[in-house]
Computed example of a mutant assay.
Amino acid sequence: MVNRFHSPSNGNSLFWYSFDIGLVHIVYYSTEHDFRRLSSQYKWLEQDLRSIDRIRIPWILVTAHRPMYSSLIGIHLIQIMLQLNIEPLLYKYHVDLNLHGHTHSYGRTCPMYQHKCIDDGITQVLIGMVGMI
């Protein structure tokens, strides 16, 4: 098993990067930096997802701080921006699982895309389970 680490050439490897562990490609992106379609982070993320050999690496797990979906915090601008910019990219490259934190509770969706459960959708998991009273 060969593990590879991918970081952006623009010096932002502390904020977004990816690596392979066995059959899983793991991608961290930043919800605290510009992730819109013309941003350097978005371009890096698309290149990273495009470069995955899905025969060798069949699973893609993506994670970030703020949630794309949550039943607890209502709709916030950051969620709308993630759904408009990042969700189509994750769907295009068949991401399997999208993990988030920020909100201190647990939540999980069906495989979904654009608020609808579909067979080839992305499972969204909110894993921020500590600290909430």
Rank of each mutant, 00 (worst) to 15 (best):
I60A: 07
S18L: 08
Y113E: 00
L23W: 04
Q47Y: 04
Q124K: 07
R108S: 09
I78K: 14
Q83G: 08
I55T: 15
H100P: 01
G107Y: 11
I75D: 00
Y106I: 00
L14Q: 10
D48P: 01
L126Y: 05
V125A: 15
W16L: 03
H65Y: 13
M132N: 14
V2T: 12
R36S: 15
R66F: 14
L82M: 12
K92G: 00
R4P: 01
I80A: 09
V125P: 13
I133R: 06
T31S: 15
M112V: 01
L38K: 15
L97V: 12
K116T: 11
C110N: 07
N98Y: 14
C117Q: 04
L23G: 06
T109K: 03
S13P: 01
I118A: 10
Q124W: 10
K43E: 02
C117R: 05
A64M: 12
L49E: 05
T109F: 08
I73S: 11
L77G: 08
G131W: 06
F35D: 07
G101M: 06
C110Y: 02
Q83C: 09
I57Y: 03
I118H: 07
I133W: 03
Q124P: 05
M1K: 12
E87S: 05
I57M: 03
V24W: 12
I26K: 01
Y91P: 02
R56G: 11
F19A: 03
Y28L: 15
P8S: 10
L89M: 08
L99T: 03
V130Y: 08
T31E: 11
Y113V: 01
N85S: 06
L126A: 06
L77V: 13
D48H: 03
